[in-house]
């Protein structure tokens, strides 16, 4: 009997130890979550605003762009696989510019998600790469912080260059490609063109959050 006691005790102590450690680690996790969640949310919002500000220059709008965003789903025209947010910049109620989400499905590996900023006149303000899985060191040079390839787009429109020249140089178009990576730039240029065509052919005035929600 006296020999059984300690082993019994140690068996019962196992779940207790586990439970104690679980409670402690959970408490630490909860505490950290509580302490950091506001800062994280703020950082996310800031990062989002920052990327939007590149696409929609400040002087173009005085509305709350994030609150006024509408959800669109255009698998045909913009390659969407799920609904995306379209941001509309308005100055005193009139639309001045748009940030159009577009997906290039013909990248080198997987989809490339972009945001194209366009003024009402159809001029590109800027282009942002949101998400991609292109080859590190080659295809990923489309990212703004990895090379200045993206910087060739602002200022262009469907008239400049002509539509048939909306291609990379290798295909007889006007835009630079990236050495040793042609497929990725080709897909991105085509996607930007799609966004411009969409901007030209769509009436954004009638687009409101309510109208979309009703659908």
């Amino acid at each position: 009997m006296s020999q059984q006691k300690p082993s019994n005790k140690s068996i019962w102590s196992l779940p207790v130890i586990l439970a104690v450690i679980t409670v402690i680690t959970s408490a630490v996790l909860m505490l950290t979550h509580e302490l950091t969640k506001d800062t994280i949310e703020q950082q996310r919002l800031e990062a989002r605003l920052k990327s939007l500000q590149r696409l929609l220059p400040e002087q173009l709008f005085n509305n709350d762009v994030i609150a006024d965003a509408v959800t669109i789903f255009e698998p045909e025209q913009l390659g969407h696989r799920k609904p995306k947010q379209l941001f509309i910049a308005k100055k005193d109620g009139t639309i001045t510019a748009l940030a159009i989400p577009v997906v290039a499905r013909n990248g080198y590996s997987g989809d490339i998600e972009l945001m194209v900023g366009v003024t009402v006149a159809g001029k590109i303000t800027d282009v942002a790469i949101i998400n991609h899985k292109e080859t590190p060191g080659l295809g990923d040079l489309i990212e703004r912080n990895k090379s200045d390839w993206l910087q060739q787009f602002p200022g262009h429109s469907l008239e400049n260059p002509e539509q048939k020249n909306w291609k990379v140089k290798k295909d007889g178009g006007q835009f630079d490609q990236i050495t040793a990576a042609t497929i990725t730039p080709r897909a991105v240029v085509a996607a930007i063109k799609k966004a411009l065509l969409y901007q030209q052919s769509t009436n954004f005035e009638s687009m409101t959050n309510e109208a979309i929600k009703d659908v």
């Binding site: 140690s10 102590s13 196992l14 130890i17 586990l18 104690v20 450690i21 679980t22 680690t25 630490v28 996790l29 950290t32 979550h33 302490l35 950091t36 800062t39 994280i40 950082q43």
Partner: peptide, 29 residues
């Protein structure tokens, strides 16, 4: 506190928590 029988789950708990805390702190600051 560690016992032979439950050391692995304990380590997993600790490591996963530490990594998660680091991730949250990095995300915030």
């Amino acid at each position: 506190m560690t016992r032979q029988e439950i050391r692995i789950p304990l380590f997993v708990l600790l490591i996963a928590s530490v990594v998660t805390v680091i991730e949250m702190v990095m995300n915030a600051y």
